[in-house]
């Protein structure tokens, strides 16, 4: 445990999350995955938007960028394209990524830019105390859906895949080993990688929907899911209504910043009169 504390800004702790929240589980899995891969702390930029999940970056000892609601991926796109050598990780929530930031999400997927995006999906807006989100299931309750949600939720993984993401996986806070494994694989992937994590909000979503506390919420999540490998050998009626977890999609497509660097090389070859802009600070970092 102690060795992982070095990844935290300990002067910023304790965190603001409620007892039983899933955000700590996901943050812990992310740190362990980074540690296991031996990634250089100084080479990582973590970006988040607004919401409970987005507070994670403030506690972590990297270059961290806590942005505005929904914009994390757009800021991250600037970081990554300006300095492709950096490992850029976005931590976002379901409201942040699927509602206000939905457009940035699908376009980053379309570009296949090398950003690892971890979506902590707790089916609600926790930070603002439990309103319905685009991931609140049909019929369930939120403070802005007091009679039951008449809208339908996204399948975020299908959305990411259709938009062009080249690594798509789903985990839960219940299936911790799988979670850490999938985050690790996403971090290794060169391209837009999405890990949706089904997570619990016992304070608002769980209580409002009478699911119970944190443990009940975890069981509620567990009972809805089925591993994609197990599902492959099950008869269709047993898969009916279940949410698949595991590695759901891997695509083959050249990564965006890599292609842009190749474009620069190509343009500079055919425009030899343009010397590299020597005086620009940071330009020397730009060769990768």
């Amino acid at each position: 445990m102690a060795e992982f504390l070095s990844y935290f800004r300990q002067d910023r702790l304790p965190h603001i999350w409620c007892p039983g929240c899933g955000n700590g589980t996901v943050t812990g899995a992310l740190i362990r995955a980074i540690d296991k891969l031996g990634l250089d702390k100084n080479n990582i930029v973590m970006v988040s938007g607004i919401g409970c999940s987005s507070r994670a970056v403030g506690y972590l000892d990297f270059d961290t960028l806590h942005t505005t609601h929904g914009r994390a991926i757009a800021f991250a796109t600037g970081v990554k394209l300006a300095r492709p050598r950096l490992k850029v990780i976005v931590i976002t929530g379901d409201g942040d990524s699927a509602a206000i930031g939905g457009n940035h999400f699908i376009h980053a997927a379309r570009r296949n830019i090398d950003i690892t995006t971890i979506i902590i999906n707790n089916n609600t807006y926790g930070m603002t105390s439990g309103q319905a989100s685009p991931m609140t299931p049909h019929g369930m309750l939120g403070t802005t859906a007091p009679y039951g949600n008449v809208e339908y939720n996204f399948d975020l993984c299908e959305l990411a895949k259709a938009a062009g993401a080249t690594y798509v996986a789903r985990a839960t806070t219940y299936h911790y080993v799988l979670l850490e494994d999938l985050i690790g694989k996403a971090l290794m992937h060169k391209g837009f990688a999405v890990v949706e994590v089904l997570s619990q909000c016992p304070t608002y979503f769980g209580r409002k929907n009478k699911i119970g506390g944190a443990v009940d919420s975890l069981n509620w999540i567990k009972n809805q899911t089925i591993n994609i490998k197990a599902a492959a050998v099950l008869p269709p009626e047993k898969r009916e209504g279940k949410i698949l977890i595991g590695e759901l999609h891997r695509g083959e497509k050249a990564e965006f910043t890599q292609q842009y660097l190749e474009l620069i090389a190509r343009v500079q070859r055919t425009n030899p009169t343009y010397a590299r802009n020597k005086g620009v600070p940071g330009c020397e970092l730009n060769s990768d």
Binding site: V45, V47, T68, A74, T77, G78, L81, H104
Partner: peptide, 19 residues
């Protein structure tokens, strides 16, 4: 970018790296 919000946000991200 996909819109002007994304455009300036990406600029700010890039600027944070020194660009």
């Amino acid at each position: 970018m996909e819109d002007e919000i994304g455009s300036i946000s990406a600029c700010i991200g890039a600027s944070l790296t020194g660009a």
